[in-house]
Amino acid sequence: MSPDVSPDMSPNLVLVVVIAVLVTTGVYLLLERSLSRVLIGIILLGNGINLSFLVAGGAAGGAPIVGTTPEGEMSDPLPQAMVLTAIVITLGMTAFLLALAYRSWQLHRHDEVQDDVEDRRIARIAARDEPIFEDADADMAKLDLERDAAEARDEIGLSGAATTPSEGPR
């Protein structure tokens, strides 16, 4: 803002503060469970980033049209063109996410983003230390092996505590 210190490079402080607020709120909302909040978070985040392009364009100036504004006072038109593209894209994605949230509400009466069911199942199996496959061919053989191993150890006369079948070969 101060024109004596490299006038083109100093960013507009108001814009920077607005960007910081938008991005912070956006990230916070993005971490929520409800898809509507995530959506609002994405919108805020996207708009914060869009504003950052205005900062990237340097100091504001007149309309960049030859004839209306002297060349030195024009604002940079390129970031504005890019922001327009980005705004249109964000708008389209927002519409799609809204439709998705509505569909989720139609199906479940809520729009919470759920966990991966299969992931949970595999984590549960791992926690219980079970084999992941129910092997149709090998199941019986494996049980027999465990029992055989337990019996064999008994014959040698080791203490019973060490031969609990639950500690089968894994």
Partner: peptide, 30 residues
């Protein structure tokens, strides 16, 4: 229901990466 659930995650993550990419472009331009 299953596709909406998995699609939501896919879309939100993809949008996040797009926002980061866009931010990088803005920084590169400035």
């Amino acid at each position: 229901a299953e596709r909406i659930r998995s699609g939501t995650i896919y879309i939100v993550v993809a949008l996040l990466s797009s926002v980061i990419f866009l931010f990088a472009i803005g920084l590169a331009y400035s």
